[in-house]
Design a protein around this nucleic acid. Structure first.
Lengths: 349, 349
DNA sequence: TTGTATGCGTTATCAT
DNA sequence: ATGATAACGCATACAA
């Protein structure tokens, strides 16, 4: 593989000139530059990024640390990250399966020297020191921060508000026996959504303690298994708020299997509005979250910090949610003619 | 940020010793090593990977070039790649939105010096020279190779076989008017699936020319719009083979909107078996592809080439497909009790 | 406009 | 077992 020296000698110039041509740093004589480009093309030369970042101390790369890659949730966030990064000529170094604090620290370390900054998603509480330790050297942006006390920019989702409005909607429809399928313990999103559920109940003048809370872990399986608990309670709930869509989907499967009609016999609401939600039957009423934007904003905050010399004060953003009323909660919900509603534009964008 | 020199002086040793401790290369006196670890911990030191890879010429990173990141297809492939890479202590550098040949070349170049190898997915035909040019310097593995003539390892999907068996199934159910919604022109997957469709028809003793072929581009929208064309044809088709699941989903939406019953009035079969397929109503009969394994095998082939000094002969693998018969094609298909079938294990793994 | 020379943080090859 | 030092490929301050 050709180096800058090969090109220099092939073009009859010094390596400094070759460097200048590739970096467009100083004015170079047009004919000299031309010779350089030719030589480079012939030798199939392109600067070695490892060497380049060693001298410049910039990598044009940002690292992304995720707990997992499964499902539409992460998929969409990554897509947002990738697009925003690409727009700024940045590359993306991904590393997943980091649930615990020590794994996050290890992954962050192993990226040292390869990234200009880190986007970390660690929804499990107890990652505080981990992030604190990591964020000393490199600018860090948190997605769905699990701790409010860290000095670190972050972008999150209005979990509380979303859950609150979803449950409020059920209450307004007349439901008085509402169950929740909770997310995993120690997960900040899960806890906030639970808080929103309880608050909506309390504000409506009821006792949250009287409402059934079924444990779950954000997997479809948990939603499926929750069905039994819910159906056995007496008086039987007339509505269920699942803390995420996958659990709602599992619940719908179970209800289908035991031939319980949704929403007539049991109303169901989810959270996240993954792509699948509108294709289910009945289509799923859920809390919409702009996951793409979540990733995009994380990148923008990170690059802002990176450019301002990392000394900026930390910025904390929270993305608003909106309730998407479909069929699974009864009443107003209807199956929308999916495509026609979008007009002529490509609705994938 | 601390460097190896800081640690060396803090521990009262030379930088060579620090390097040795971190690389476990030579035997180092236990007490000396201990001093080094302590000093490193105190200074929060970790080797700079850019510098390391400059001298070792290894990056422990593999690059992934994709045309897009949208949808479950890419999501699952990436997940397979990430897991396999992580298992081998490799990191993953992602770059998407590379539809055209020149973009692939540019992306590959911009990764020079940061990766030990490249996984490229460029299903568009005409990327031959691009890949040929790229694969000179770095080991490359192609996913769904668009050209059989390149000297390069690859792992693909049995598109032809999958389409063939899907259409054969429809023919066996008695359908004689079958339409296909095609994938984008120039896409190798789309072309192979079309070929499988035609061949199945021909083998059954019919004229492929007499069967309706509706253009599409793998998007849901295309499937939705195809409905009109299909329903207007006379005699009206009794079955449709969509070249991927997203188009099948779009078609199902349209049929729902105009109140055509599936499968009674029109049978539908898809391709890919994305997670959503089994939750649709009716659940979608489709050709299953192990996308996770696709990514995994790509990594394994790449690392094998990387370790063997890149001089190995190219290996070409093709992953088999299997038809998953559900409700949308009528007859045998039934809605399976999704979770119960999986037993007690976590079926996400 | 162009060339020379230094340093980036490491690993690896010699020494000792 | 440990230390000195030469690469690695490039950017850049300085000199010409």
């Amino acid at each position: 593989l050709a180096t800058i020296r090969d090109v220099a000698s092939a073009a009859g110039v010094s390596i400094a000139t070759v460097s200048r041509v590739f970096n467009r740093s100083t004015r170079v004589d047009e004919r000299t530059a031309d010779r350089v480009w030719r030589a480079a093309a012939k030798l199939d030369y392109w600067p070695n990024n490892a060497a380049r970042s060693l001298t410049t101390n910039r990598t044009q790369t940002l690292g992304v640390l995720l707990p997992d890659l499964y499902g539409e949730f992460f998929s969409e966030v990554i897509r947002g990250i990738d697009r925003a990064a690409q727009q700024q000529q940045f590359q993306v170094l991904i590393s997943s399966s980091h649930a615990h604090a020590d794994e996050v620290v290890a992954a962050a370390r192993s990226m040292r020297g390869r990234t200009d900054g880190l986007i970390i998603m660690a929804s499990d509480t107890g990652c505080s020191e981990a992030v604190g330790q990591v964020s000393r050297g490199v600018p860090v942006v948190l997605i769905n921060p699990s701790c409010k006390f860290i000095e670190c920019s972050s972008v999150g989702v209005a979990n509380f508000d979303g859950a609150f409005s979803a449950v409020q909607h059920l209450l307004r429809l007349g439901h008085r026996e509402i169950a929740i399928i909770k997310g995993p313990a120690g997960n900040i999103d899960a806890e906030e959504r639970l808080r929103g559920f309880r608050e909506a109940v309390a504000v409506a003048g009821w006792e949250p303690e009287a409402f059934l809370e079924v444990p779950g872990d954000f997997t479809e399986r948990a939603g499926y298994l929750a069905a039994e608990v819910i159906l056995q309670k007496s008086p039987r709930p007339t509505a269920v708020f699942a803390a995420n869509d996958y659990m709602a989907i599992g619940l719908l499967s179970a209800l289908h299997d035991v031939e319980i009609e949704v929403p007539q016999q049991l109303a169901v609401v989810g959270f996240d509005d993954i792509a699948m939600a509108k294709y289910l039957s009945p289509s799923l009423t859920t809390v919409h979250v702009d996951l793409h934007k979540l990733g995009e904003r994380a990148v923008q905050l990170l690059l802002a910090a990176h450019r301002s010399g990392e000394k900026e004060n930390c910025v904390r953003e929270v993305l608003a949610t909106s309730l998407v009323v479909r069929q699974s909660c009864g009443a107003a919900g209807s199956r929308e003619p999916i495509l026609l509603k979008q007009g002529g534009v490509n609705y994938f964008s």
